[in-house]
């Protein structure tokens, strides 16, 4: 049996850990709420972007744009979105495994976040580029940088297909790793053409040229937002579990400590009684 002092130090160090995990949980909860709000505020833009595409598709075929061009699947690049920091449960492992499972011999990855960079750096996978430190201050400009990176690779013909691999924020309790095709853009069925007399300025073709890259930027932005909310939710749950575990450990150790203390008191009493009897 461990001695009393050792037990006491262990209990107090676990209490310190518990304080830290509890604080981390609260911070993650606050950040998650903010991340969820960001997803909601991106929605009007997404709806309007879809509307513009719908109006354009009446007068010009969107799939004539080079970013829609399907060259077969020879070389693929996977954009794997992970987090910069750990302590968030299986969040990074899940998304990295999902990406790793799809990578073939000729493929490469572009990593977002430190965790994916480390994961793929340690395996035999070509890391074409990495974007780290994106999530500390997430802004749309960062999504554009990542999107420009893959768009230029695609247009230059060094890659034929681009996939986004990220954790989708299904709910606070579930984050689902998804593998989505980013380029070439998968044409969406547009329902009902527009009957209104529309003016196009300058021309539908030029408008399409402006629209399509923005559509890609937005897809990347959405993946970043989903992943960010998922990371915080995952961290919140991991830290909640850690706090609970620490509580259980403290309880067990305290019980043991009390037993130990009682035993030593009994021993001392026996000594005193023994001494008193000897004197009498």
């Amino acid at each position: 049996m461990a001695n009393l002092r050792e037990l006491r130090t262990r209990v107090s160090s676990i209490k310190n850990i518990q304080r830290v995990t509890n604080a981390m949980q609260l911070v993650a909860a606050a950040r998650m709420r903010r991340a969820q709000e960001a997803i909601t505020s991106a929605r009007p833009y997404a709806q309007q972007l879809d509307r513009v595409l719908q109006q354009l598709s009446g007068s010009v075929d969107p799939s004539s744009h080079p970013l829609f061009l399907d060259r077969g699947d020879a070389r693929t690049v996977y954009v794997v979105v992970s987090s910069d920091r750990g302590l968030c449960g299986g969040f990074n492992t899940n998304v990295c495994r999902a990406g790793f499972g799809s990578v073939q011999a000729d493929d490469s990855v572009v990593t977002v976040g430190r965790k994916a960079r480390n994961f793929f750096g340690n395996r035999n996978v070509t890391v074409a580029n990495d974007h780290a430190d994106v999530f500390r201050e997430l802004s749309f400009a960062q999504a554009v940088t990542i999107a420009d990176d893959v768009k230029s690779r695609f247009l230059a013909g060094t890659v034929d297909r681009v996939f986004l691999v990220y954790n989708e924020f299904v709910s606070v309790a579930t984050q689902q790793p998804v593998v989505e095709q980013l380029l070439p853009i998968v044409p969406k069925e547009v329902e009902g053409s527009n009957s209104e007399e529309y003016l196009f300025e300058p021309s539908p073709e030029v408008l399409l040229d402006t629209l399509v890259p923005r559509h890609v930027n937005f897809q990347v932005w959405r993946a970043l937002l989903e992943s960010n909310a998922g990371e915080q939710a995952s961290r919140m749950r991991a830290m909640d579990n850690a706090t609970k575990n620490a509580g259980e450990l403290i309880e067990d150790l305290t019980r043991e400590m009390n037993k130990e203390r009682q035993a030593s008191i009994t021993l001392e009493l026996m000594d005193i009684i023994g001494g008193a009897e000897a004197v009498a």
Partner: peptide, 19 residues
């Protein structure tokens, strides 16, 4: 600021999509 020059919009403008 339209791509082909600035423009103004008042109520009941003709439907338009401009860069």
């Amino acid at each position: 600021p339209g791509a082909d020059g600035g423009f103004g919009v008042l109520a009941r403008h003709q439907p338009m999509l401009a860069a």
